[in-house]
Design a protein around this nucleic acid. Sequence first.
DNA 1: CCCTGATTCGC
DNA 2: GCGAATCAGG
Length: 180
Amino acid sequence: MGWTDERVELLKKLWMEGLSASQIAAELGDGVTRNAVIGKVHRLKLSARAKPTNTAPRARPAAARPSAPRRVASASSSVSQMSAKPRISMSRPQVMGATALAVTPEMDAQLYVAPAAAELFIPEDKRLNLLQLNEHTCKWPIGDPLSKDFYFCGQHSLETGPYCDFHSRRAYHQMDRKRR
DNA sequence: CCCTGATTCGC
DNA sequence: GCGAATCAGG
């Protein structure tokens, strides 16, 4: 389905209201991706929304890409893959990211739902000291390393890293993507 | 990892 | 004009 007047209008409206590109894409439906939305937004020249104190000219990549082979689809071995994550869809009215939020009525209705525990509580019988760690235990340190109460998470760690699911997410969020 | 918008460029 | 792939960032 192409960009009918109606759909373009809806796009403009939602964009101005501050919804993210992916949210708008979901709203439009019909397999519209967030890239499609962003692309359209640019073509319509209606980018730049809610820019209070704008002084950032935005760093230009300066186009230093000679002939990088695009869409290299090495279909040599089509085994493996499948990251087993049913990724259905997100409950729509969700608003995340630090974009200009559009406060809809149904949102402020139940804004403060869960304080969300800052840490996992590890039962004493599951806590591990340094010597008890092995390749399958989460090595996330908890407490003061100098204290007697210090221990490691000890839950079963992921195959992809030294931490359990919970702490792996926590570690990544701030780590990586800095200094390359 | 999840996500955001911005840009490029083959179609 | 379109949008996937990429880039740059949170």
